[in-house]
Design a protein around this nucleic acid. Sequence first.
DNA 1: GCTTGACAACTTACACTGTAAGGTTCATTT
DNA 2: AAATGAACCTTACAGTGTAAGTTGTCAAGC
Lengths: 223, 223
Amino acid sequence: MDTSIKKKRPRGRLSREMIEAAALKVIESEGLAGFSMRKLATALGCEAMSIYHHFPSVAHLFEALVDRLIGSLEMPDTDLPWRQRLRIAVQDFRRVAREHPAFASFFVTYRMNSPTCLAWLNGILGLFEAGGFGPELGARLFRTTGYYLMGAILDETAGYAKGPSAVTTVSDEQLAQDFPKVAAAGRYFGTAEFDRTFDLGLDMLLDEMERARDGTSAPNTGS
Amino acid sequence: MDTSIKKKRPRGRLSREMIEAAALKVIESEGLAGFSMRKLATALGCEAMSIYHHFPSVAHLFEALVDRLIGSLEMPDTDLPWRQRLRIAVQDFRRVAREHPAFASFFVTYRMNSPTCLAWLNGILGLFEAGGFGPELGARLFRTTGYYLMGAILDETAGYAKGPSAVTTVSDEQLAQDFPKVAAAGRYFGTAEFDRTFDLGLDMLLDEMERARDGTSAPNTGS
DNA sequence: GCTTGACAACTTACACTGTAAGGTTCATTT
DNA sequence: AAATGAACCTTACAGTGTAAGTTGTCAAGC
């Protein structure tokens, strides 16, 4: 017979809120690939299958995490000038993503389709509408801004500055000797340079948008 | 005793070349997450562990795949004007990535550190050097261009146009009613629009670079 | 106080993954 | 002919997500 004393825990202790918070913690400490339901359960002090009572699958859980992050964003003040509003919205997204670096690569590649996320997307598209580009150009500028933003976040959270992901690596000496331009440019690739580099590109895009809006010049194409 | 006739296959049939080619096929047919050594082995007509004789791990194999794709790229003709050279190099990378859409999300997030990849990066940095931006601005423009390119590829190969990755979905009717701007913009998010949208953003960046180079105007910052 | 029902959590089990360790087979060299 | 070593296979293990079934616990009704 089993004489060991099992510490009984109260039922109803778990909640979606708790699980989500713990999941983000586990993802950040173990990495996205290192995350598992069993590790999450350990962090929560329960069994893996208990989580399934609250989330039917990891996919549902991760979806809730995206919702939680996107849901924390709010649209910039309507009184602000258009350019600033877009700038703030973009930086807000970037900030939230970078607050969860290990989750970021899932976050930015996630194809949002929940009401929460769609509401946010709708708001951002409203910003481009307010820019007065018309539906087509507005949609395309939304896309290109998204490309830049997603690429930047990915690089900042999982890119070069984190060191090589390659299995075979090249020594610093060989790098300096055989690939001097890479070695030299590396100086500007560090974490400390992220903000300046991101702002440079973002301002380039915003400048071009204002030009397009003011009719100063249409961007060259195909050349 | 075993009376079954086992079809013996010749030794030395497998090769890195063969395995790489098959791996790319399996990745495209099964998806990146659906890839496994066992499925690759089945495709090759061998056992999973046989692959380990040629590649010590999946990581090594995937690294070789990146090398293979990057290695197929060559720098644009030096006789061409600077802007065209950068444009061609960017489009070459995009084309190769999009030829392997399922592999793309690994491809673009991979932190290149092999000699082959470093040589390519070095060449691209040479393009920015040729643009005459100086080391710092050159490095930053390289980064921002990379952000845009990576983000675009990710979206084009794994993004919105592929349908939602969410588990909970919103019906078209609800989308049109509650998120009209998303519904309207969706018209310009399809595969057929990829090239035009990508070119728009790329030309915006190139225009700004030429402006910066010609000293017409420095980009606004922080506003 | 006792019973009942519903829900929350646990247990077990399965098919899958990457890969370590060791065994077998065969082409090549001596 | 014997030996060598590369190429491939077999087995096994620890890990994964999760389906199915079981148990524990608490609240409401009697």
